[in-house]
């Protein structure tokens, strides 16, 4: 009986180790295969790949800068819009709203995260883009047109719409993480502030101060998501590899150039260039996510200590 137990334990454990090892294997293979396939362009272009501004696959000219620019600007724009809103929602759910309201509202915000990217894209093309073209863009041009960001031809398809769509998509993600962090801030911190005659908002500020590094982590996590978002932004950003200060102009992101061109990249060099861009995206999101996790985990640990 004891014998079958130990054999059973060994078999069982081996199976589990194998399943866990598969995750490790996937990651290692992924890195290896991408580096391997990107080698042709890494060798031929080196750093100039990352800083080149021209992208002409037909002539084998590969400069990824417009895509890097588009990825960063659209993501930063998304953060500028999403962070204050997400903080507001999280504070409302944890600090302000009674539970009866917070529970259903929180669930509805979670549902926003469940909507697939392609659905945001569809809605973006047919609802948001016309809205930006006919109302929001017109408004911005009229009152802030003196800024270089809000000049140029307004089609509704471009960086601004892309940034807004990304913002809508990362809002529920940032909200969820901030919410979890605010919930672990000890009640004693709130009571300490209240007992000194702090108002609700002043108390909330103390709570936010407690959660500061975790909130930073949540924001960076949102950044990671925005950087890698593909379908929705591909559908509304205009897919044109240019660097323009105007948010009305079309742009391109790394993820969208991959989505739009990868299937057609028959030439080996072109494929290598696209995979190298994928590698860049992979490494950047890897670092960003790891850093965010670290920040969030540290807050959790301190709160539970």
């Amino acid at each position: 009986m004891a014998q079958t137990g130990t054999i059973g334990d060994k078999v069982f454990r081996t199976i589990l180790v194998i399943t866990a090892a598969i995750i490790l294997l996937i990651m290692v293979t992924m890195v290896f295969i991408m580096v391997w396939n990107a080698l042709p362009t890494i060798k031929s272009f080196g750093l100039s790949f990352l800083i080149g501004r021209e992208w002409k696959p037909a002539d084998s000219i590969f400069g990824a800068l417009p895509f890097i620019y588009g990825t960063i600007v659209s993501s930063v724009l998304a953060l500028i819009i999403a962070v204050p809103i997400s903080l507001g929602i999280a504070v409302f759910l944890v600090e302000q709203a009674p539970k009866k309201i917070a529970t259903p509202v929180g669930f509805m915000v979670e549902l926003l995260a469940a909507i697939p990217s392609v659905v945001y894209g569809l809605w973006g093309i047919f609802v948001l883009a016309p809205f930006v073209r006919d109302y929001l863009g017109v408004f911005l041009e009229k009152y802030f047109g003196w800024l270089p960001f809000f000049q140029g031809r307004l089609t509704g398809i471009g960086m601004l719409t892309g940034g807004i769509i990304l913002a809508l998509m990362i809002t529920p993600i940032i909200t969820a993480v901030v919410r979890d962090i605010l919930e672990v801030v000890p009640t004693q911190q709130r009571e300490a502030a209240l007992a000194l005659g702090a108002t609700k908002w002043e108390t909330t500020q103390i709570v936010l101060g407690n959660a500061a590094s975790g909130i930073a982590g949540a924001v960076i996590l949102g950044l990671g998501r925005a950087l890698g978002e593909t379908m929705a932004i591909t559908m509304v950003i205009g897919n044109s590899p240019q660097i323009s200060a105007s948010l009305f102009e079309p742009a391109y992101t790394i993820a969208s150039v991959l989505a739009a061109n990868f299937a057609d990249a028959t030439d080996e060099f072109y494929l290598s260039a696209l995979i190298e861009m994928g590698l860049v995206l992979f490494l950047v999101t890897f670092v960003v996510n790891a850093f965010a996790k670290l920040l969030v985990a540290r807050v959790g640990k301190r709160m539970h200590a």
Binding site: Q188, A192, A198, N210
Partner: peptide, 20 residues
């Protein structure tokens, strides 16, 4: 209540300094 709590201070069972 805000004014009341300023007048009536409180010290808790577990010390709870702010992270400052």
């Amino acid at each position: 209540v805000v004014a009341l709590r300023r007048k009536v201070g409180m010290v808790f069972q577990k010390s709870n300094p702010f992270p400052k």
